[in-house]
Design a protein around this nucleic acid. Structure first.
Length: 255
DNA sequence: ATGACTCGCAACGCGAGA
């Protein structure tokens, strides 16, 4: 089963890119982030016509996540537990063919001297707590999404340019590492030591110069890692017209 | 002139993204 994740940066503007991706790459499951639409405005019919089940957790203007699947989506959870006052639509999960799959849009956290940085760190604490619970289920788990974390300096073209940024701050990286240390595997980094990116800024010709960063990740529980096949980053969509600034990342789960 | 961002919006400049 091929599971992919993609921050589309507005599903409305990106609908042609999304349709192309589903047709050309045909992932079994696609986790989407940054929909920027309420559930009623998600292009459900277009996606269903390509043979996908659709579950969304949308929000007006900002955030919003979705799960698309060729197989039924079961036991849907919308929202990350731990803060009933948090109204940002950044998390949902469902079970597909016995695999628990989450679509995650982790807060950016910049600027670090604003309340956005503690919000990011608090959100990560909640994710850590929830991810621990998922491990206890002993299901294969895939936590897929835009983590807004550059795990190591090698995951960005110019570490100095990102020094002090919420994407590289030790507080951010250490919480990401807590997810790894409790038993989750960074699928891309486990598969290859190759330098590769999932995001290139719209500005300053970043795509053309390959000035990217690796911030979209697939974290696999031990039961999922045991079944891990190939892992890749599909750069094609980033080079198209009206692209998202992110490109999809995917993993194959065997069996 | 060497490079120039893109979304959404009770919009028409601004906040947010990373």
């Amino acid at each position: 089963m091929k599971i992919a994740s993609w921050n589309v940066n507005s599903v409305k503007v990106r609908l042609p890119r999304l349709m192309d991706y589903l047709k050309d790459y045909a992932p079994d499951v696609l986790c989407l982030q940054e929909l920027k639409v309420i559930d009623e405005n998600f292009p459900r019919l277009e996606v269903e016509e390509l043979g996908y089940h659709v579950e969304t957790h949308g929000q007006k203007t900002y955030n919003g996540v979705a799960l698309l699947s060729k197989f039924p989506l079961e036991d849907i959870r919308r929202g990350l537990p731990g803060d009933d006052a948090d109204e940002q639509a950044r998390y949902m999960e469902a079970t597909v063919q016995g695999i628990r799959i989450a679509s995650i849009y982790l807060p950016n956290g910049n600027p670090v001297d604003s309340d956005k940085f503690p919000y990011k760190l608090g959100w990560m604490e909640r994710l850590i707590t929830h991810a621990k619970g998922l491990l206890e289920s002993e299901m294969p788990v895939v936590l897929a999404g835009d983590y807004n974390i550059i795990p190591q300096d090698e995951d960005c073209y110019d570490p100095k340019a990102w020094e002090g940024d919420a994407l590289t701050r030790p507080e951010s990286r250490n919480r990401f590492r807590q997810l790894l240390n409790m038993g989750y595997t960074d699928a891309y980094r486990a598969y290859t030591t190759d330098v590769n990116y999932t995001y290139w800024d719209y500005q300053r010709g970043a795509w053309q110069k390959d000035h990217g960063i690796r911030i979209d990740h697939l974290l696999l529980s031990p039961q999922a890692t045991d079944r891990m096949g190939k892992v890749g980053i599909d750069k094609g969509p980033r080079g198209q017209d009206k692209p998202s600034d992110h490109t999809p990342i995917w993993v194959e789960i065997e069996g």
